[in-house]
Every structure is written in C-alpha cells, then in structure tokens.
Design a protein around this nucleic acid. Structure first.
Lengths: 236, 236
DNA sequence: CGGCAGTTTGATGTTACTCAATTTAAGTGG
DNA sequence: CCACTTAAATTGAGTAACATCAAACTGCCG
C-alpha cells in the first residue's frame, strides 16, 4: 500500500475497509489492495494510453472519466463515486482508453489485474461483476439517448437524477442535500453543452422548485418531479 | 430449429455454418442454434421489455438496435451486421432493455442462454467474449464523444467510417462499394440529427469526393480522408 | 483589500430543426 | 414496357435552440 493510515468505509459495490488493505468488490469477494494513494482536486490520475498491471477503483471522493477531443473540447463519460471501478474494461484491458481526473480530494485503490481476474472466475456468470458489466451498458445506452435525442433541460435533469440516485444508494446523502463538487464546466462536458447553457438551465430548475445547485451543494426540492423529467425511460 | 433449409456462411465473429444448426461465436466455440428464423425489412424482432431464455445473434442481413423516446423520437444504438450479438448484456439479462428491427431480409439465430453461459466459462478471462464486451464499451465511448462534442459532419463521417470498417473486417465489401440498406432516417436517428440535415451533410461529402451514398449503395471515394474525418481519436 | 476562479446575465451568431414543396427512385399492375 | 402509386431524397425559407463573446458579479482565500 501507499502508506495511508485510515481508509474510510463506504457502503456500495465496493468498500475500502477501514484501516485494512482490502476492498470488497462486486458485492462479495475481498481483494488485496496492491496500492492505495491520494490525489488532489484537478490532479490527473490516469491518462489515455497509460498501461498498468492494476485495476483502479475509487475509494473516496469524486473523480471523472473523460476524453479530450482535438479542438480542445472534453467529453465526460462518468462521474466516479466512492466504490466505482474506473471502467469495466480495465478488468481485461491493460491500456487505458480514457483519462481520469480527481474532482475532490480522492483515494484511489489498485488491485492486481491477474489476481482480480482469478478471483472473478466464479462458477456462474450470474454473479456480481458480470451483472455489473451489464448494468454499465444500460447506463451508457441511457446517456446515448440523452445526448442524441433530448433537450438541454432533459440532459441536465438526467445527470442530476442519476447522480442523486447513486449517492442515495451509497448512503452518501444527508436528507435532501449533499456536497456536489462538479462545476458548471464539468456538468457541461458531461451533457454536451456549454457552461453558460448549463447555468441557464440550472436557473430554470431552481425557479421551478425542482433542485438547486449552489456553493458546492446540491439540494433536491422536488424529487418526484426530478424523476419525472430526468428518468428518460424509453418506450415500446 | 425453425425449419429453415440453408444458412448462409458469413465470416466474422459469428458464423452460421452452411446447412448446420450451429454457430461459431467469439472466435472459438460452437453453439447449438436453439432456433433460427427469418424476418422482413421493417419487422420488429425484439421489443424492449421482452423476456427470452435465448441469446439472439444476427446471422444474415442488417438490423438495428434502438429505443423510442416518449415524444416519438428514436435513438439507434448500433447497426447489427452478420455475426453480431444483439447486445452483450443478453448474456446475463433475460429481459431486453432495447428493441431490434430488421433493416433488410434477415436471419436471426438464437442460442440457449444457459448453454451459452456454461460454455463461456473459460479458464481465462482474456478469452473471446470478455474482450468482446470490452470492445463494445470502447465503441460506445466513441459514440458518446461523437454525440456530445462533434459537429453534424463529424458524426455522420464517424458512423460511415465505422460501418465501412466493420463490413471490411467481415469481408462483406466488394472493392469500395457495398450495399447500404439504411435510409436517411436511420442514419439521422443513429447520429442525433434529422433526415434533412443528414441529406445536406451527405451532399457535402459527395461533392468533396469522400464518399457517396445513393440507391442503397455506399461508395468510398477517398478512404484516407474518410478516416481522417471519421476516426475521432480522442487525445491526451 | 485585492486576486482569482467560477457564476450569472445580456447581446449576438450559428447550427441544425421545422415545415413545405419538388424531384427522384422503386414498386405494381396492366 | 409503360402509367400509376408510394416511399424516400432533395431543396428552400423561416425558426428555435444552443453557442459564442463579453461584461459584471459573487464567493473564497491569502
């Protein structure tokens, strides 16, 4: 390990156990942390093209997975919350096809790919990690629908709704308010808009009493309405 | 089987072997076709919400995987070519979270999920289908970048480039010209545009001598330039 | 009290959408 | 093979949504 003393416990798919060099992944097995290190806000954790024998997990804080495009733009694929694997592809790919940057103070755990792959060989495909793979696909399809066929408001609502839900599932929310470290620029790059457009959209949601984002905190004012606008369930 | 007599052979990840109730999937193993049926252009093959004990593969023809959105729009996720699994998620999910429709006359093969899952349990995760899973993720990330951060032209070029490459890999192209059954409306729904916009974009590519789409055929006029515009490689 | 990063607001520009008309291609039946 | 029918492609004019540019404002921190 990198020499850290305490590892905060977070319920979820993965949990870095307090003070121990283990994490629990995909609901069941324990894995030895090959390495565990901290990173500061804005710090690059992995870069597209990097190669590593380890699989990366976020133990604490927020980060985001993204890619820069030639003209200077940036597309954010996911926000990584405590317990998230950087990408399911890491289980088989030794080369990263994306970059990851810390949004807050973060703790990054690494597990040897060899060891992880061995342990993931379960007698049934129904178990943990394969289902997790499939869940990621569904999430991705939703993002594609949002980007391809929904308005600016729908896309922002979808992002906020999903993040709220994920925070809720990990028990990281206090009532209807929780820290939200992403800036307008990050939201913009996640939903394919500009920061200015995001600002206007957020203003409308605030005035409509659905949710309010300010001073680094997100407050949910009307969850039902947020779900209605942000769930994007495809039909037929 | 559904009682068909001849099954055409198509090189690729999957091959329905001529006249035999088997397919080869993920490069290696043979699987018994539980069922094999035909469908006509425009026919719905599976609907979002359907449940099946089988995993579906396209043996012949073109189809597309999509979802309708409440306001009547449609997002196309993939075009399915001969050899494609409908979705990697099908290996574990019994319920479809997407719909699939035939674009041409198609042949659809079905393999029992139980049986497939048993055979996919290989001694190493590096083999076939997990890598295929990972490849799908990378493809999806590219689509997200295209939809979120690229112009109309880039998105269309990206789609055409990817389809050409896939047809090429399957040896389904004759020189620089091959049948392209997707209509403007399908392209539009795959790249988040309207058919009219796609029409204008195609016109510009034709005039620039990059590729020409007409009468159901795609002709590549300048592959290098198509690659340059359509490859969308993300940096840094 | 600056200084800085991030947010907010306004004015203007561009891209792609909408609506409508016209042209072309693909069938179909005689 | 041709007249007729229908779906798709093409083109144009007007519009809406979002981007761009620029300025003012806010909160935060030394």
């Amino acid at each position: 390990m990198g020499g850290e003393s305490e590892i905060e416990f977070h319920p979820g798919e993965l949990a870095a156990l307090a003070g121990e060099p283990f994490i629990e992944i995909f609901g069941s097995r324990r894995h030895v942390l090959q390495r565990c290190r901290m990173a500061h806000p804005g710090e690059r954790i992995v870069s597209c093209g990097d190669v590593s024998e380890n699989v990366f997990f976020l133990c604490k804080g927020w980060a985001f997975r993204f890619l820069r495009v030639p003209d200077g733009g940036r597309q954010i694929f996911d926000f990584l919350l405590p317990g998230d694997i950087f990408s399911p592809t890491s289980v088989v790919d030794e080369r990263f096809t994306f970059s990851v940057e810390a949004l807050t103070e973060v703790q990054v755990g690494e597990v040897q790919r060899e060891s992880l792959a061995r342990q993931l060989m379960s007698p049934t495909l129904q178990s943990g990690w394969v289902r997790d793979f499939a869940r990621h696909f569904r999430t991705t399809d939703e993002l594609i629908v949002a980007l391809g066929r929904r308005t600016a408001e729908d896309r922002v609502a979808h992002l906020i709704f999903q993040l709220t839900r994920r925070m809720w599932l990990r028990d990281l929310t206090r009532e209807h308010r929780f820290p939200f470290p992403a800036k307008l620029g990050h939201i913009a790059d996640a939903v394919g808009l500009t920061p200015e457009s995001v600002c206007r959209v957020l203003g409308r949601f605030r005035r409509r009493g659905i949710f309010a984002l300010s001073n680094g905190y997100l407050e949910i004012l009307n969850f039902d309405e947020l779900e209605r606008v942000g769930s994007l369930r495809g039909d037929i």
